[in-house]
Nucleic acid binder design. Structure first.
Lengths: 150, 150
DNA sequence: TATTGTTATACTCTATAACTATA
DNA sequence: TATAGTTATAGAGTATAACAATA
C-alpha cells in the first residue's frame, strides 16, 4: 500500500522523528494516567528500576545513571520515601551519604508499574499483528542502543 | 556474568511505550537544536504545516486541528508573525476573526524545516538498514493513525 | 448569550546556583 | 578544597479562568 501522492505537505509529519515524538508523548501521558492510582509518576518508575538494579547506591549515583541533576533526584526520592517505597540508610563510613534501599513495598510498586506498562503496550500496539509488534520492539531497541542517551 | 534479576528489572524499560517515550524526547531535543538557526521551535513547524494545509483558517481553528488551547496558540502565532512567516488578515465579514495567511517567507521556512527534519531522520535511523527504516516508518504510521491524537 | 482573540494567572518541570555538613 | 545532599530560585511549557470586542 503506497501513500505516494498522499501528502507532500505532510512530509514533515511523516518523518520517523515526528512520529516518535508524538507517539512517545502520547504514551507517556497514558502511562501517567494509569499510574496515578499507585501514587507514582512515570519518572518514579525509571528511578525504582534503577534502585533495584543498583542496590544501596547513593542518591547522586542514581541521578547520574538516569541523567538527572541532583536537585531533581532529591525530591523524586523524597516522593518514594513518602510512599514507603525506599529507605534512606545512613552510610556510617561516610556520613554525608545515604544508601537508597528498596523496601518490599517499593518492590511491589515496581512490579505493579511493570504490569501496567506491559498492559499499556498491548493497547499502544493493538493495531499491529503479533510479528509486527516484535519487529517494532526490535527496531526501537536498535535505535535506543545507538542513541547517546539510552 | 549474567544477572537473572537484571532481565526482569529491565522489562519496564524494554516496553515499546518506554522506548517510544525516550526516543521521541531525544528526537524532539535534537530537532529543536537543528531548528534554532531558523528562529523556530518544533511546535512552530507543526503549526506552519497546518497553516499551509488550511489556508486562511482562523487561529482557533488551527488550535483545534493541532489540539492546542487558544491561550497557547496565540503566542505561537505571535512568534510566526514576528518572524514574518504569516500575516494576520482581518476578516471583514466577522471582525472578531483573523485569517492566518502563510507568507512567502513562511513557506520558505517550512521548506527549510522539512529539509532539516528529513536530514535528522537519516541520523536517527542511521543504525537501521534501508528496508528496516521503511518498516519502522510504516509501523509508526500504523500506530499514529490508530491513536486518538494523531 | 455565544464566540474569537487575548491576557492574567497558576502549576509543573527542569536547571542553575547557593548553602550545609561532612570529607 | 572537594563532595553528598539539600534548598532557593528562575526559566520554560502548559492549562484554566477572566476579559474585551463582536456576533
Amino acid at each position: 500500500m503506497y501513500y505516494s501522492t498522499m501528502k507532500q505537505a505532510s512530509h514533515l509529519t511523516n518523518t520517523a522523528g515526528y512520529m516518535l515524538s508524538k507517539l512517545g508523548q502520547a504514551a507517556t501521558e497514558e502511562f501517567a494516567e494509569r499510574l496515578r492510582p499507585l501514587g507514582l509518576r512515570p519518572r518514579h518508575c525509571g528511578l525504582l528500576a534503577a534502585i533495584r538494579g543498583m542496590p544501596m547506591a547513593s542518591q547522586l549515583a542514581l541521578g547520574q545513571a538516569l541523567n538527572v541533576v541532583p536537585s531533581a533526584i532529591v525530591p523524586m526520592i523524597d516522593d518514594l520515601e513518602a510512599l514507603g517505597a525506599i529507605n534512606r540508610v545512613p552510610d556510617e563510613a561516610d556520613r554525608r551519604r545515604y544508601a537508597i534501599q528498596l523496601t518490599p513495598k517499593g518492590a511491589a510498586l515496581l512490579q505493579q508499574a511493570m504490569a501496567i506498562a506491559l498492559k499499556l503496550d498491548d493497547v499502544i500496539l493493538a493495531s499491529l499483528e503479533k510479528d509486527e509488534r516484535d519487529t517494532l520492539r526490535r527496531l526501537l531497541d536498535k535505535l535506543s542502543s545507538r542513541s547517546p542517551q539510552g
